[in-house]
């Protein structure tokens, strides 16, 4: 079920403040974050985030198309490298 419109998008305030600070200063330093559930708002475009996936922080460069998605969608939490090959007999 999607989120109620009444509440508006969920944006991590601490993260938003950090982005606003960078926008004010004109810097584009990567921001480390654990807030995977945070919705990407237009202010984030052009910034790089280091989104935690439970193990490492993956680099996510936010483009215009990503607005409305959540940060976690770009930082996969599972690694699947394929099934083991058949053993040689």
């Amino acid at each position: 079920m999607s989120r109620s419109i009444k509440k508006g998008p969920y944006v991590d305030l601490k993260l938003f403040d950090k982005v606003a600070e960078q926008n004010g200063a004109g810097t584009r330093n990567p921001i480390k974050t654990w807030s995977r559930a945070c919705t990407i708002v237009p202010e984030f475009v052009g910034h790089t985030f280091l989104v935690h996936n439970g193990r490492v922080h993956t680099k996510v460069y936010v483009t215009e198309d990503m607005v409305g998605h959540r940060l976690g969608e770009f930082s996969p939490t599972r690694t699947f490298r394929g099934h083991s090959k058949k053993e040689a007999s």
């Binding site: 483009t63 198309d65 990503m66 976690g72 969608e73 770009f74 996969p76």
Partner: peptide, 12 residues
């Protein structure tokens, strides 16, 4: 294609 390009989970 948009989902594929932005590299989000659904695109993958």
């Amino acid at each position: 294609n948009r989902l594929k390009e932005i590299g989000c989970y659904r695109g993958l």
